[in-house]
Amino acid sequence: MANESRMSFSEVEKIFQDKVDEDIRIEPKDWMPDAYRKTLVRQISQHAHSEIVGMLPEANWITRAPSLKRKATLIAKVQDEAGHGLYLYSAAETLGTSRDEMVAQLHSGKAKYSSIFNYPTLTWADMGAIGWLVDGAAIMNQVPLCRASYGPYARAMVRICKEESFHQRQGFEILLVLSRGSEAQRRMCQDAIDRWWWPSVMMFGPSDDASPNSEQSMRWKIKRFSNDELRQKFIDVSVEQVKLLGMRLPDADLKWNEERQHYDFGVIDWEEFRNVINGNGPCNKERLAARVQAHAEGAWVREAAMAHAQKMAEEQKQGHEAA
């Protein structure tokens, strides 16, 4: 293989695409198209932001978790999400951006994150619904990404998927217990499902014909399945699972289609999706404000730690010089 810097642009691009086609990972120092790099930075950081913002709706209920076991497992789950955000920021940083830059974009409203976290968590049952539906949808997206073309991204996804396994089960179990409980608990369970179902379905993004970038992302293998494919799979699986809860999904149009061998489902309210993703959701402002506040109030802490480390480094240096 000749030195890439002496090759033409189309030649290096071909080598790059050949690697992708053959499932050879692209690593940080490899040549990659500018657009690939930019798209990845946006996609990975968006995913990272989603994990971090996603901590908030669940962290809401940590202090109110109704049993010690639930308290502990909820803290563990939310903490995992912090860790996932960190793995993803770390993967994005290999592409030449910094965490500070990405966080600044999130706080300024420039960067997007998953719309689902702009919905409020109103009852304990929401913890169950989020685990079952939101994490369920996320897992469906994430597992294929374990084979994404960009090495650090794929490896972060593998780590995340391993840890994700208990999140969905935990959520479903919360709902299961509620579904077998008192009348109020059963109502709580159905109410949460009623509120989280459609936002979860929307998590897969616009339909394929409204997703112009999907095709390029699939060629680059940073997206392995189309939005509609994953959404259909999610709905098919959920319709079966909800039966175990003795609950119903809030879609009167759900019906098995023998011909397609899939469930038909109702019309998605894309206006709601657009509004929520553009900042008009019920909690957008609060979520962002919470993150901005944490970062601002933490500035003196970060500064102090840095200052102390520098003092220690200076002392050590002087110690060596004196010796």
Binding site: I52, Q79, Y89, A294, V301, R302
Partner: peptide, 8 residues
């Protein structure tokens, strides 16, 4: 949780 000064 969710409000710390830095992720780590």
């Amino acid at each position: 949780t969710g409000h710390g000064p830095i992720l780590e």
